[in-house]
Design a protein around this nucleic acid. Structure first.
Lengths: 331, 331
DNA sequence: CTAATCACTGCAAACGTTTGCACAATGGAC
DNA sequence: GTCCATTGTGCAAACGTTTGCAGTGATTAG
């Protein structure tokens, strides 16, 4: 039924060791046998059994990827990057969607750990302790979350927050409202701290924190009215979806963006160019991040680089579109 | 280092066969040994090596999922459904993103076939012949594409197209433009045929086919002007993204939706509620489709049901929102 | 009390590879 | 012509499981 290395060896008239070597490490056999074996294998449609190979080598040439929500385009992009890089390195990707549930996340990691060469956890919702534990059980890379002692790839959230503030202040805004994301979100914490710091060291700039909101459209709808009441002339939203929600609510109240208020987002997801006005936002190169995480993981796996579990920070950049403008002139 | 079944057996004071049976088929050992083994295994942190098990059983308890583009939320949802259902059945999911490239798709399928129990291909871009071939190499389920002789899960594209037409005609529209998707798209073909048929059998209804456009925002931008020139009062777009593009271009030209023209989409992706006006569209229950595809696959894998490679059709429904209204009164 | 059945457990083979080691053949240096 | 190094190949063990088969007691029927 299925063709094994034994069949190839028999047809080619060599031993199975030779077949194995011809295909895996071509420089260990003579040129003529290599060609012979390669041809035989190809015509017979032979593909090495991964389970058998994994059993003896102890490696699976596959990695695990854990994400909170595959439906969220933010994570979709990261998956895409991970998948592409993994393939080009000859690795396959196991995927696990945790539905934003920390306990499912822990379980997924535990399940994966023993059956892959390494695991990438994206925007981990789990506790530091659980992650430390997981890192001890096998190669692990954290994406979009930093944890000392564990290799981590993050976006420069602080830099993104600062460049947004600089942009708004340059436009002339002095009262700026922040619609924060979930308290449990690591990146929200990073952004909040950077916004506060930047506001504190700028003259005559007030940062108004409106509180924490769900990181989705409806969260923005909720926050918009608070922002208006606060007298802010610019609103920094936790992410693009929230920004879109804010804009929609302002529209309903008859307020114009950016004429009456400026609004910014984070992430630069596709929807930011589908709404009117197009969003000024901070681009997070997610595919690149996916790729970088695979590189970091394979680095650990292959070279056993337990030396420097570095925290890599990927630079981000401001994308200025139509949702920001100078504040309205005081009457 | 890593704990094997042998270690568990030794500590528990039983043979490895007993450990294996206690964990895999608990009814084959006595109650007391079962508990003993289970406890020992748990405290030792034993997890069976999948490769070893797969080697002897010939099954991997994992399935492969091939999608054209993980960044596309349409496929993200399907992945989510597949993943969830697979987990609850004890299966893991290998994922492969083909970047919309048919040859990458073929390769991905070939790579996966030998290392998983079955493969699900989502919106296959490959040729019928290649798919037939793949179906011969192992269990295969097609999603969002129908192929005789291969188990397929599809949306009721025809039904969706008809319900849109009925809605627009009921509103009073008589000149309806269709912005078609890629010629290579199976679902586009299905929708086109249904629209044509429905228009043909309705009195005084003209279906204006504007041609094929990229299934994205810019495709809608391109098509909008043609639609206006055609004198249509309603525009049926191939999908939601195209519909959003159409609306944006109409807005730029000072035309109001739905006052001047009605616009509809397909898919009901999240963005359809983020734009103004919210889109009237056809909801495609994608997560459900993902789940159904796993069920179909496991059906084939487990019960070896080569009897009826059925083509399952998932019903769809119209979601009426703000982008459709009666046509403007003739002056 | 004997024989037969039954429930439980252990032995050992098998799954398809990779790889350390041994061996054979070849070629070059002296 | 001898010796050594080099190159290429094969043998066989090992990886961690599952599972058919056989064996051991215990239980039950006669």
């Amino acid at each position: 039924m299925v063709v094994t290395i034994r069949d190839v060896a028999q047809i080619a008239g060599v031993s199975i060791s030779t077949v194995s070597r011809a295909l895996a490490s071509p420089d260990k056999v003579s040129a003529v046998t290599r060609v012979l074996v390669e041809d035989t294998a190809r015509t017979m449609g032979y593909r090495a059994n991964r389970a058998a190979r994994g059993l003896v080598t102890g490696r699976t040439t596959s990695i695990g990827l854990v994400v909170p929500d595959l439906e969220n385009p933010f994570f979709g992009s990261i998956c895409k990057g991970v998948q592409a890089r993994a393939r080009s390195a000859g690795y396959s990707v196991f995927i696990a969607d945790t539905d934003e549930d920390p306990s499912l996340e822990d379980e997924a990691v535990r399940n994966l750990t023993k059956q892959v060469d390494g695991v990438i956890i994206c925007s981990a919702r789990s506790t530091d302790a659980a992650l430390q534990q997981a890192a001890g059980d096998g190669p692990l890379v954290l994406v979009n979350r930093a944890l000392p002692g564990v290799p981590s790839i993050t976006f420069d959230n602080g830099g993104g927050a600062r460049v947004v503030m600089r942009h708004l202040i340059a436009l002339g805004h002095r009262r700026i409202a922040y619609v924060a994301g979930p308290v449990t979100s690591w990146s929200n914490r990073e952004r909040t701290l950077a916004l506060q710091a930047f506001a504190a060291e700028s003259d005559h700039v007030d940062l108004i924190e409106l509180g924490n909101f769900p990181p989705v459209f409806s969260g923005g709808m909720q926050a918009a009215d608070l922002a208006v009441a606060s007298g802010a002339t610019a609103i920094v939203a936790f992410n693009d979806l929230v920004a879109v929600g804010v804009i929609e609510r302002l529209r309903q109240r008859g307020l114009q963006v950016p004429a009456d208020l400026s609004v910014t987002g984070f992430d630069n997801v596709p929807v930011s160019t589908l709404v009117w006005p197009n969003l000024t936002t901070v681009d997070f190169p997610r595919i690149q991040m996916g790729r970088a995480s695979v590189d970091a993981l394979l680095d650990t796996v292959l070279h056993r680089t337990s030396i420097r579990p570095a925290i890599t920070q990927i630079p981000v950049e401001l994308v200025v579109r139509q949702s920001t403008a100078p504040p309205p002139q005081r009457a």
